[in-house]
Simulated assay, not measured.
Amino acid sequence: MLITTYAFWLLLGIALLLSELFIPGLIAAFFGIGALLVGVLTLLGIIDTLAAQLAVFAVFSLVALFALRKHFHRWLRGTEADPSAKDMDDAGVIGSRVKVLTDFTDGTGTVQLNGAKWDAESPDSLKMGDSAWVSEHKGIILVVSATKP
């Protein structure tokens, strides 16, 4: 045999762990850990048949994936105690005065805020040159109104 069984599992585990660096999603890491576990158990002689190796790999990888992914994801990405208490105006734009650059048609147009051009939505009929105020933002879209909030 060109490569021993335990070496195959160890190399597969390392490859899966390394793939997580290039395609992050925190999924391949659990399969990599499962492959490493099977490689070590095979090296120690605890499991020897292919069926047992595949079963241990599948069970351990899937249990770890579903049981631990949420915890690892929170640990790697961070979390907040109460997301609803987060200041939704993290950009500091709500209440800012903007200049209307184009007439609003069908509730959409463009405005200028701090020298930058923004796509905007408004329930009000706004014309080019009018002033408006930011009432909220939806990502890169500002919601503006003719009256100050």
Rank of each mutant, 00 (worst) to 15 (best):
M1T: 10
I3T: 09
I3D: 02
T5L: 10
A7N: 11
A7F: 13
L10M: 11
L11E: 01
G13L: 08
I14W: 06
A15R: 08
A15N: 02
A15H: 07
L16Y: 09
L16T: 02
L18D: 00
S19N: 03
S19R: 01
E20N: 04
E20T: 05
L21Y: 07
F22G: 15
I23G: 00
A28F: 15
A28R: 03
A28M: 15
A29E: 06
F31W: 09
F31N: 05
G32C: 04
A35N: 07
L37S: 05
V38G: 11
V38E: 12
G39F: 11
G39I: 10
G39D: 12
G39A: 11
V40K: 01
V40N: 01
L41D: 07
L41I: 08
T42H: 09
L43G: 03
L43I: 00
G45I: 10
G45M: 12
G45Y: 14
I46T: 13
I47K: 06
L50K: 11
L50M: 14
A51I: 14
A51P: 00
A52K: 11
A52W: 13
L54D: 00
L54G: 04
A55M: 14
A55H: 02
V56A: 07
F57A: 06
A58Y: 05
V59C: 08
F60M: 07
F60C: 12
S61P: 04
S61H: 04
S61C: 05
L62R: 01
L62H: 00
V63M: 13
A64T: 12
F66N: 00
A67Y: 05
A67N: 00
R69L: 09
R69S: 09
K70V: 06
F72K: 07
H73I: 08
L76C: 11
R77T: 09
G78K: 09
T79S: 15
T79A: 14
A81H: 11
A81G: 10
A81V: 12
P83G: 10
P83R: 11
P83N: 12
S84F: 14
S84D: 14
A85K: 15
D87R: 13
M88H: 13
M88R: 15
D90N: 14
D90K: 14
A91I: 06
G92T: 07
G92V: 10
G92A: 09
V93N: 01
I94A: 03
G95K: 08
R97W: 02
R97F: 01
R97M: 12
V98P: 02
V98G: 00
L101N: 04
T102Q: 13
T102V: 07
T102K: 14
D103Y: 11
F104Q: 05
F104Y: 10
F104G: 01
T108I: 12
G109S: 04
T110Q: 15
Q112T: 08
L113Q: 04
N114Q: 09
A116D: 10
D119I: 03
D119M: 09
E121Q: 08
S122Q: 03
S122F: 04
P123G: 05
D124S: 07
D124F: 01
K127A: 13
K127V: 08
G129P: 02
G129F: 07
S131V: 05
S131E: 13
W133I: 00
W133N: 00
S135C: 03
E136M: 08
G139D: 04
G139F: 06
G139M: 05
I140F: 14
I141N: 03
I141L: 14
V144P: 01
V144E: 02
A146K: 13
K148F: 01
K148P: 00
